[in-house]
Design a protein around this nucleic acid. Structure first.
Lengths: 218, 218
DNA sequence: CCTGTATGAATGAAAG
DNA sequence: CTTTCATTCATACAGG
């Protein structure tokens, strides 16, 4: 029972849903939307901070428990809430945390995924969830491949732009990003780390001091 | 396989400028930037969730504190912002015409859809509607996979009739280097194009039940 | 409105 | 490394 009437239908639907004047489907954010996003992120940040504060307060009175929490949060965060969680997915799924770290590693661009390194990374990531060296290896491999593919297709259709999409990754000593949103029409380098949000990193860091790697750019 | 069409976006944007009445300079995010943002939000979400869990645990023992807490945190950041939805990531829908053509191509069964071929097909299909190479690629891939699955399940039911055991739980484990035990619950990826609903709202809502308004405009 | 289903897309893993 | 496969995720629709 599938009505394949294509775009027309969808367009109508969307329009009726909300935006009246913006009929076009562009993957573009207006200033306003940017603002919304920024605010939403700010909300997260705020909530997290306050939760952390709260935790501190509470744990000050229950220190026996607090140690346990911080120690086990990432490895086994939800045991308490849902014991009916059986699940057991067959294929590994990186936790957001792991993803973030992997992404950073990728961006840092050591093009050399040495065995040694892999092992090291794996060890680090184990703190944030179940993972194996194979996972790390595969992830990096896939990431590389897909990034490359993207670049290729992008370059293909973007011939006239001499913009020198020097799409080779890493080593960007770009200024530290504060606010992070680019105003340029030209898309930035694909994996521009400058886009990453410092605020969050520091938040995460304050939560999980052992994850210094998150910010490690040197 | 995963490459999203980053360049396509740009083209669309220019289109917009052309036909646009006002110049409307918008800030553009590349897909990659969007993705990074999504992930960062996902990290926030995860942290928040876990903190919430923690809070529940704690407040179960100290309900006097928890009440105070819920009352004071929220500062109404999102209520005002509403109204504009970020253009959703839309998923391509083949027009009937395109579908027909694709079907034919599939039936012709050249099992190897070379890149060359894909490009060609895409060009052809563009005449019948908006489409990209990735779309074609995905479509064929999905078509193949699902066709195959159908056969498999058909065969399975066949076997079942003779064996009498129809337990076909997809529980079979592929050879995995690491023995799998139950994963931690992996919160789903926040992959919401609008950046505005589901995950975050429900998270916030769970934090601040009284702010139901948050969801009002969805 | 909410729930179920078809299907475009993303992605971990493996083959080539 | 590149390409392909298998599985999962998320969304567009249809039906209650």
């Amino acid at each position: 029972a599938s009505a394949r009437n294509g775009d027309m239908r969808r367009e109508e639907r969307e329009e009726e849903e909300e935006m009246g004047e913006e009929v076009l489907y562009v993957k573009v954010m207006t200033d306003e939307q940017m603002e919304i996003l920024r605010r939403q992120i700010a909300v997260y940040a705020t909530i997290c901070e306050q939760l952390v504060e709260m935790h501190k307060t509470v744990s000050a009175q229950q220190d026996s428990l607090s140690g346990m929490w911080f120690g086990s949060l990432y490895c086994d965060p939800l045991l308490t809430s849902s014991s009916h969680k059986i699940a057991a997915r067959q294929r590994w799924t990186p936790s957001p945390m792991q993803l973030q770290i992997l992404e950073n590693i990728f961006v840092e661009g050591n093009g050399t995924p040495s065995k040694e390194k892999i092992k090291e990374i794996t060890t680090e990531l184990t703190k944030h969830g179940h993972i194996s060296e194979t996972n790390v290896y595969n992830w990096l491999q896939n990431r590389r491949a897909r990034s490359k593919r993207k670049q290729t297709s992008a370059a293909a259709s973007n011939t006239e732009s001499e913009a020198g999409i020097e799409i080779e990754l890493p080593n960007d000593k770009k200024a530290r990003p504060d606010a992070a949103f680019s105003h340029e029409k030209q898309p930035q380098r694909v994996d521009d780390p400058s886009f990453q949000d410092t605020e969050m990193n520091s938040l995460v860091h304050s939560l999980y001091p052992e994850t210094t790697k998150l910010r490690a750019h040197m």
